[in-house]
């Protein structure tokens, strides 16, 4: 069933880089999750990093202990063993509130119109139009309607790349800014290529900006309950539902965050890639039911 073509490459003498597909797809991402989780279970001596990405992954080794070619043999073997993606993935489904068209990212949107494809529209208006939606409200509705798979963490600590669990023809795709911005507010909800992200910290950026999340996804002080174990909240394989909220709810969540009491609404979940790939709509509905009603 798979049209994927795997490419094994050295990244210097310490890294092996494996590209599962040039194009992004749920299938490629699940394959990466499956291989990297199996590799972790093997507990090979000499592995320093296992870093899954969107349609690829990389592994860092101490080559004095584990020769990169030996690792590649292991990886090929694992890849063969999961050919049918016959695995179970255990992760979390999380409610992530987002205030769309908020004053803070709107200010940033207006600050950098000269770096945008369409200086006369907002990022939302532009993205809605090029994706064939009649209005920005309809476009926000499409983001809100189906959850996203956290397909990669990186760039800076905690930034989640998220790929929506919908059929390929319903995937949203937008370009990055023509020239990157020098400023993006902390917790901005953005979109670039086929990925939704939340910016963990204020900084430069090139993704389209649609809104802001009231709750952090990264907290170095680790005072909030969700950050006790790690300064970073998202984990690859998580399922995030970006829920459109009102300003009142935004303010209420902010107050909880500042009081140190906020926790994400979340549920443990176990699923197989097949059930997602066979019928993404049904899977999404099941996930949302589990998150809000079970």
């Amino acid at each position: 069933m798979s049209k994927l073509h795997t490419r094994y490459e050295y990244g210097g003498d310490e890294f092996v880089f494996v590209q599962l597909s040039e194009a992004m797809s749920l299938e490629a991402n699940f394959k990466g999750i499956a291989i990297t989780r199996k590799l972790k279970e093997r507990n090979l001596e000499g592995i320093i990093d296992i870093c899954p990405a969107n349609a690829s992954y990389m592994v860092r080794v101490d080559p004095d202990v584990l020769h990169p070619d030996r690792l590649i043999n292991e990886l090929r073997e694992i890849e063969d063993s999961i050919k049918d993606l016959d695995i179970e993935i255990s992760s979390r489904v999380v409610d992530v509130p987002v205030l769309f068209e908020d004053p803070w990212t709107h200010e940033a949107v207006m600050m950098f119109r000269d770096r945008h494809q369409d200086p006369n529209s907002t990022d939302l208006e532009y993205s809605a139009r090029i994706n064939g939606y009649n209005s920005k409200e309809e476009f926000i509705g499409a983001i809100d309607a189906a959850p996203f798979l956290v397909s990669m963490i990186g760039f800076v600590p905690g930034l989640p790349w998220c790929f929506q669990i919908v059929r390929q023809e319903k995937q949203i795709e937008v370009p990055k800014y023509v020239r990157p911005r020098t400023y993006t507010p902390e917790r901005t909800f953005g979109f670039g290529g086929a990925f939704a992200v939340i910016y963990p910290v204020q900084g430069a950026g090139g993704y389209q900006m649609y809104g802001i999340a009231p709750a952090p996804i990264y907290q170095k002080e680790q005072t909030l309950p969700d950050f006790q174990e790690s300064i970073v909240f998202p984990q690859q394989g998580d399922i995030f539902r970006y829920r459109s909220i009102t300003r009142d709810e935004y303010d209420a969540v902010r107050a909880e965050v500042e009081a140190g009491t906020f926790t994400y609404r979340k549920k443990e979940i176990t699923f197989t890639p097949q059930e997602v790939l066979e019928n993404p709509e049904r899977f999404s509905e099941m996930v949302l039911r589990r998150l809000y009603h079970d």
Binding site: F15, E22, G193
Partner: peptide, 11 residues
Amino acid sequence: NVTDLGYPIGS
């Protein structure tokens, strides 16, 4: 551009 991927140190 490529589909976003990991960058090894030294890449």
